[in-house]
């Protein structure tokens, strides 16, 4: 049993990760908190965005300077893209920086919900996979679409629990469980997670990992919340491996009735409980 628990890595495109937590780096109150939260999370994959530099400043204000020398895998995202072409362009810019070839495809189809555009996401995934990228598309929680993304070359598929930054948790656990069940690549639940409880729930549904940013960065104490997520993800994973009990309508006692102090003696007057 120890073997099953202690050697249970997440493998994405042949890369072995001991943490199932993918860590978003946005909106932290300070670089120091960001660094300590990452430390507390145990995450080995970090996400960030590609943006124009601020020409008014000569200081290096890139987020990456805070991770120099750390053994992390970089997962740049294509946020800001509205079409497959824009996402491919951003992915190539990120790769040109020499940060590896992982890319989170994120193509918003609507600025209010930030929900992913399924058609463009599929197109971008296909093109980037052909171009040699390790593609992790952020997608809606549609089981058929998730399968199509896998077939298009995604190395992991990342359905959302609920819209980005809402903290609404898992709005469609049925779909997420189905997606996880039928997938042959890792399923990472990305977006909408509100707290450690949602992360644990997602893992218990069979997800292979969690990508979270806002619930850590905007928690009252991001460092403690990062640790809470680490534990919740681990707990959820263990529960999944252990196998939960089936749900029943009525109670079933934890101890047999037999031997109860109030059980009528054998052969005596049967005035006790059934």
């Amino acid at each position: 049993m120890e073997e099953k628990v202690s050697r249970d890595p997440l493998v994405i495109a042949g890369h072995t990760l001991s943490s199932r937590f993918l860590f978003g780096t946005g909106r932290f109150p300070s670089p120091a908190v960001l660094q300590q939260a990452l430390e507390a999370s145990g995450a080995e994959v970090i996400t960030f965005a590609v943006r124009r530099v601020n020409l008014e400043s000569v200081e290096d204000d890139s987020v990456l300077q805070h991770f120099e020398g750390k053994p992390v895998t970089y997962l740049p995202n294509t946020s800001g893209a509205r079409t497959a072409e824009e996402a491919v362009r951003i992915a190539r810019l990120a790769r040109a920086a020499g940060l590896g070839n992982w890319i989170k495809v994120e193509i918003s189809g609507d600025s209010r919900s930030l929900l992913p555009d399924p058609i463009e996401t599929l197109r971008a995934t296909e093109e980037l996979a052909k171009d040699g990228f390790i593609v992790l598309p952020y997608t809606s929680d549609d089981p058929i679409l998730c399968k199509r993304l896998e077939e298009a070359g995604a190395s992991a598929v990342m359905p959302g629990g609920s819209p980005i930054g809402t903290g609404l948790g898992l709005l469609n656990p049925y779909n997420l469980a189905l997606i996880a069940e039928q997938a042959s690549v890792p399923i990472i639940i990305d977006a909408g997670i509100g707290s450690a409880k949602d992360a644990a729930e997602a893992m218990e549904l069979g997800a292979d990992g969690i990508l979270a940013n806002t619930p850590i960065a905007k928690a009252q104490d991001p460092i403690i919340m990062a640790r809470a997520f680490r534990l919740a993800i681990e707990a959820g994973r263990l529960a999944w491996l252990a196998g939960r009990i089936p749900r029943k309508k009525y109670a079933s006692a934890s101890s047999d009735w037999a031997g109860s102090l109030f059980e009528a003696a054998a052969g005596a007057d049967s005035g006790g409980k059934p």
Binding site: G24, T25, G26, R27, F28, L34, T47, F48, A49, V50, R51, R52, V53, L55, D61, S62, V63, L64, P76, N77, S79, L93, A94, A97, L99, I164, D190, A191, L211, A212, N213, T214, A217
Partner: peptide, 10 residues
């Protein structure tokens, strides 16, 4: 010409 770099994001 575009000069881009990396910023925090999820």
């Amino acid at each position: 010409i575009e000069l881009v770099h990396f910023v925090g994001g999820g």
